[in-house]
């Protein structure tokens, strides 16, 4: 994001500035409140929450809810905690992100530097595929995964995320490579480099920033997905989001709010970490996903 405030020239009085800072601070509270609630309540005994102390700092600090959420809490039929599901999510996210990024880079390269008749239509079709309501593909995909023997497995989920993630990764790389000077590609052609050599030696070394954006976007989206996870996984292949929901919604026994909050933070941590470490790229990814073309 550029740093030139458009209102460098707009002067505001000190009274107005006080009001502005107050409003901005209040909204900081609004956005931070749920995070505060989650963190604070994941560190206190259940009894303090039940006594109406949700907003208070823990009277007694404890890590038990975290331990429980991670390794012993009842998820569905098994008292395994979220650990196995966290692993499922990792196993699902890594290959899906890697493959869709590589394919997106190649697609973007073809669509901008090896243009052919109808390439815009191809891209338009890829792009629209990102935005369809996935309810429209749930029924046939369930059958297709069954036919391929991937129903209820992690590879099945990888496949689904790959198929519906390609549009976005192609979008990112296409828009980026569009700005990449075509003369470089032509120079390399004259120098004798072929299709893959140009990609590998000329395009890829300059693709760092967009690769980061694309990886962050795909990682966030796939990690946070719930619909596909809920539709296409079995108990032993559920991703983190589905397991968290099962933990929170389970109707048996006492509701262990502190454990739920600890679990929610665990589910949020990877993407939150990415956001804090690489926020700039994260925002750029969000923007590129909305301002297309």
């Amino acid at each position: 994001m550029s740093t030139n405030a458009s209102s460098q020239i707009i002067r505001t009085g000190s009274g107005a500035r006080f009001v502005i800072y107050t409003i901005l601070a209040l909204f900081c509270l609004y956005y931070l409140l749920p995070l505060y609630v989650m963190v604070v309540n994941s560190l206190k005994p259940l009894s303090e929450i039940q006594a109406g102390g949700m907003m208070a700092l823990p009277g007694e600090w404890t890590l038990d809810p975290w331990k429980s959420a991670w390794s012993t809490a009842q998820i569905g039929v098994a008292a395994t905690g979220l650990k196995p599901y966290f692993l499922n999510s990792i196993l699902m996210v890594v290959p899906a992100v890697a493959i869709s990024t590589v394919l997106g880079a190649l697609n973007g390269y073809v669509l901008t530097k090896w243009r052919f008749r109808g390439d815009t239509i191809v891209f338009g079709l890829l792009l629209f595929g990102c935005f369809i309501p996935f309810q429209m593909v749930l029924i046939p995909m369930a059958r297709m995964l069954g036919l391929m023997g991937l129903a209820g497995t992690v590879p099945g989920l990888i496949f689904v995320h790959l198929v519906y993630g390609i549009g976005f990764s192609t979008l990112y790389f296409r828009n980026y490579y569009e700005q990449f000077p075509t003369e470089l590609v032509r120079a390399a052609m004259i120098d004798g480099a072929g299709f893959f050599t140009i990609f590998y030696r000329i395009m890829l070394p300059s693709s760092g920033p967009i690769a980061v954006v694309c990886i962050i976007w795909q990682f966030t989206n796939i990690w946070n997905d719930f619909l596909f996870g809920a539709s296409f996984s079995d108990f032993d292949s559920q991703p983190m989001t589905v397991a968290l929901n099962n933990l929170v919604q389970s109707s048996t026994g006492v509701k262990e709010y502190n454990v739920h909050f600890a679990g929610a933070i665990m589910a949020a941590l990877p993407t939150l970490l990415v956001y804090i470490v690489a926020g700039r790229y994260f925002v750029r990814g969000l923007m590129a996903g909305s301002v297309k073309g």
């Binding site: 995070l35 946070n224 719930f226 949020a268 993407t271 925002v283």
Partner: peptide, 14 residues
Amino acid sequence: LYPMALSFIVTGTA
């Protein structure tokens, strides 16, 4: 902006 990084399931739970 950080809420955008969270899963709706996490948001919903909170």
